[in-house]
Amino acid sequence: MAERSASPRIAVEERLFSLVLALLATEQGLTKTEVLSTVQGYRQKFVVGGDNTSLERQFERDKDDIRELGIPLETIEAPESSGNNQLLRYLIPKGAYDLPADITFSSAEIAMLSLAATVWRQGSMSGESQRAILKLRSLGIESTEPVIGYAPRVRTRENAFDPLRTALDRHQVVTFVYVKPGGSAPRLRTVHPLALVQYRGRWHLSAYDEGVEDRRTFLLSRIVGVVKVKNRTFEAPTETGLAERALDELDALWQANVARVRVTPGSDAEARLGKRGTRVDAGTDANADAGGSTIELHYTDVDLLADELAGYGPEAEAVSPERLRAGVIARHRRTLEAHAPTEGGRHGN
């Protein structure tokens, strides 16, 4: 231990930087022992002929960190040494590391990408888009004037988002408890995450559900509790465009579902729902003279629409489908019951 405390403390980033440089510079790769005994930050702690277990663990964690940044740290096995991991060699191939030379960006493109990065303000998407911008800046191209006048934002506020995104990238099987509205008991689902898409403001997971042996779409807001990662992976799908397909399917669903809602003239419901939907022509609207106009709205999920319509209170009346109407009424009852006058009790404060 004496030699360790005597050596100067090397900052983590210096050790990581030195490791990347060493693995970029080598052509045939370095063995673990070569890394530990020669690379800055490891060599100071390396004990020749001694026990280097904790240093080896350090190296394993550092490799994970480096790979997290998208750096292609590869492991090659010498032909004569299969199975002996002391002889594995590590390297970062330049061709896989370097941004291809023919990829360049104009100032206007940098400005567009910078705006795209600002869309994310929270969670892993924010950190990663900022890192992508950092790499773009390394090209030394000055951005044109930032795209003025826009401050767009997409939220990833569901707790399930980041763990699902990581599982998606690593092809890890996950389980979560999913609640379907309408009283049925929450069920544990075991799925292979295939795509995460936000459609009309809602995050959805497209995944292969092992229980039903088929692909299903889940609303992230209906995942209860923690997403658990199973200790096994699934085979990476060979097809691409899975996110596009999930969006297309949601769009087809949206087109197919139509609700009718009667709204109070001059109300917030009329203004906002009217902009989103289609006003039903007075001639075909049997209720035209009932003191309100009728709007047709498309939707993907009847319960989400019921939540939204409940927010409009007496300004909006769901006419059809019946399940929507019943759902909104049930929601108003629930809210009313939860806000009945209290009898002097101050809620246990």
Binding site: E68, L69, G70, Y97, D98, L99, S124, K135
Partner: peptide, 12 residues
């Protein structure tokens, strides 16, 4: 060791 800018990670 370094010649060029790094690639983006798949997630970035």
């Amino acid at each position: 060791a370094i010649d060029d800018s790094p690639r983006f990670s798949a997630r970035e």
